[in-house]
Design a protein around this nucleic acid. Structure first.
Length: 182
DNA sequence: CGATTTTGACCAGCGC
DNA sequence: GCGCTGGTCAAAATCG
């Protein structure tokens, strides 16, 4: 399996927006990164290191920003009902060029949903970390405009170490956790 | 047999 | 108010 980080999307700790450098209309931009893995990591570092006021608005993700960051009241509550207050969770997204949808990042995930999304022929999958007490979620979606690109959105912060620390993608995540506020 | 995936239903937010 | 859309639940099915 080979995967390349191709672009960071946004950090939703704020609602400010800026030019959608990595929007679907710029898929050609990915190609130049394929030969240079270090450059990919540098790109991630640069983007994650942006202040929380920076947010690349990706049109098919950002509209759900505010509500997607709800506190996980449902973990103990009765199903779909949500609490009265919204607590925004750190959320970051990036794109990878990969043959597979599921990037093995070393954590154990359980799929809890899948939805067809607008303007995309591929469904979006919803995963939750299975570690007890860890409420980290992620969304995985393949771009219809470029089937080789998988967009992964992480929400929350793991409260435990990686369970399978010998994967190639772990290195990228390690980099991300160092340089991001997520 | 426990863990995970699948999938239809439900709910909330938003725009019109 | 209504319809659309995204996010989640939970029962059933499947897997290891």
């Amino acid at each position: 399996m080979e995967s390349f980080a191709t672009g960071f999307l946004y950090n939703s700790t704020s609602s400010a927006s800026q030019a959608a450098t990595y929007s679907n209309d710029h898929n050609d931009d990915y190609e130049q990164f394929e030969d240079d893995h270090d450059q990919n990591l540098d790109l991630i570092r640069k983007t994650l290191n942006c202040s929380s006021d920076d947010q690349a608005a990706l049109d098919h993700v950002s509209p759900t920003d505010s509500e997607a960051a709800n506190e996980l009241n449902s973990a103990t509550g009765s199903g779909v009902k949500k609490g009265p207050k919204k607590i925004r969770k750190p959320k970051c997204a990036f794109q990878t060029r990969s043959q597979v949808d599921i990037l093995d990042d070393g954590y154990r995930w359980r799929k809890y949903g899948q939805k067809a999304v607008k303007n995309n022929k591929f469904p979006r999958s919803y995963y939750r970390c299975t570690y007890e007490g860890c409420n980290v979620k992620k969304q995985v979606q393949r771009l219809s405009k470029d089937e080789g690109v998988v967009e992964t959105t992480y929400e929350g912060t793991h409260s435990h170490p990686i369970e399978k620390p010998n994967n190639n993608f772990e290195h990228i995540l390690t980099q991300m956790q160092i340089y991001s506020t997520c």
